[in-house]
Design a protein around this nucleic acid. Sequence first.
DNA 1: TTCCTGATGTTTCACGTGAAACATCGCCTA
DNA 2: TAGGCGATGTTTCACGTGAAACATCAGGAA
Lengths: 293, 293
Amino acid sequence: MARKPSGGLGRGLSALMADVSQEPEAAPDRPRRADQMVPVERIFPNPDQPRRHFTKERLDDLANSIREKGVIQPLILRKNPRDDDTYEIVAGERRWRAAQQAQLHEVPAIIREYNDTEALEVAIIENIQRADLNAIEEAQGYRDLMNRFGHTQEKVSEALGKSRSHIANLLRLLNLPDEVQDMVIDGALTAGHARALVTAEDPIGLGKQIAAKGLSVRDAERLAKGPKPASKSAKSSTKPEKDADTRALEGDLSAAMGMKVTIDHKPGGESGVVTIRYADLDQLDDICGKLSV
Amino acid sequence: MARKPSGGLGRGLSALMADVSQEPEAAPDRPRRADQMVPVERIFPNPDQPRRHFTKERLDDLANSIREKGVIQPLILRKNPRDDDTYEIVAGERRWRAAQQAQLHEVPAIIREYNDTEALEVAIIENIQRADLNAIEEAQGYRDLMNRFGHTQEKVSEALGKSRSHIANLLRLLNLPDEVQDMVIDGALTAGHARALVTAEDPIGLGKQIAAKGLSVRDAERLAKGPKPASKSAKSSTKPEKDADTRALEGDLSAAMGMKVTIDHKPGGESGVVTIRYADLDQLDDICGKLSV
DNA sequence: TTCCTGATGTTTCACGTGAAACATCGCCTA
DNA sequence: TAGGCGATGTTTCACGTGAAACATCAGGAA
């Protein structure tokens, strides 16, 4: 399944990164085509381009915006290898679709000469860089870069300027049931909440609970640790109940001293701590007197 | 100084906001001019446009990028009221400057018909929306919107989708000495660090200390509370040093008991706690025997 | 088979940001 | 002048994010 790095690794992820960044930079051996307006009907999506989740609402918004102001950011196109009169979308399919919906006749475009692998990588990278990407989409982008081009998490992290663990954590979100992933997509859960659920026993149930109650990520992490610890109170696991003998002894000593005396035995062993609270220096003298005998 | 809202408030901040957002929307009564390439020499900066801090490095970067790929995001221009053959920059002066540095002959532009106040507001808003804006620049934008058009913090916050206190907090940064503001601009301090210094007695000195030691915002907040608390160590304010007498007493009792005995006196009063650590049940019996006398 | 190393999986929480909560100011009206 | 209210000033910290630290896995070499 994974196509081994031909153009991908040969050119390096970071080089392709630069092609996509806000101000893509043409490689020296890649003559720059002048920006131009291209008729919409001469543009076609690349069949190999990663399928993206196009929310209808977002597409509508974008179409409305384009209807009023045109396409602000140009598409990145390459000549169609099979038809010199048409172009293939490398980046900007969403804009192209919205432009059609807005019934524009032409869109601004940058023409580049990419081979198949480069085009695919550029498309994926450009998609990852979108500001309005949700965590699932971002994770899918990382997965695509790794699965299709054999990049390691480390390589992707370096190219995109994120930590390797950040990449790993986002990827793990893709292990969640679709239902939970959808909650991330539509904003009911954040990436942090969802991440806590990756190793949980019932991610769907917990996800719904977290969303319904508006719990924080810390709460989610605690809930996700499992029903077993949750069925015991924190108190009972760290402070075992004092037995009756210890409590009686505390009472006797408190009475004898006229001060509050507590005995805190460490669980499992024989050691512990006796604590005496004094109210004034006379009482402290009293304690010292008795302990010095 | 503040020009009272004529077009500004009449049209509403949010309406102008939409003009600038990623996909600016033309008002119904404002016919949309087709996108076009405009010769650089026919474009002039608006003398009333807010002066922006153009880092040479950033301008170089942008010029290099433009040299390779052209201007990706079009300028927003309006016809020059005094010369029908030229245009005035409403938004995008930085791009225009970089394009000239890159020796481009023409740039992509959107032509709009704004009156003076609208043009100024659009320029400020567009500048605020820039992704690479530092906190000081952002604050300056808010201040401009308020001072030049009489908008309140509340109004600005609503239009930009931020809380009123966020607006206020950023504005307060502008009260800092230039030296501290510069540290924010060049990244030595974050907005949070700087904010903590607004009411500090020596913001410059503290700012340098925070930056040099890489302190967190919490640390900065604590430091900024004043030199009085800062001159005492945190330990001394919560755990006063035990005096020699107390330590000697602890030693005596520990020796007499054959267990670790500590005396923790509460500051300022006469009360406190005596703690005895026992290793086994025999020692516990020993303690009880002595305390029951 | 064991060991080593690169790669990946997982947990935990410090961080700066943004805003809630509170405090203060300034102006206008009764 | 006092009170009310809109506007602004200030403090504090909960939040989700991102990554450090640790754990585990997988594959290859000795």
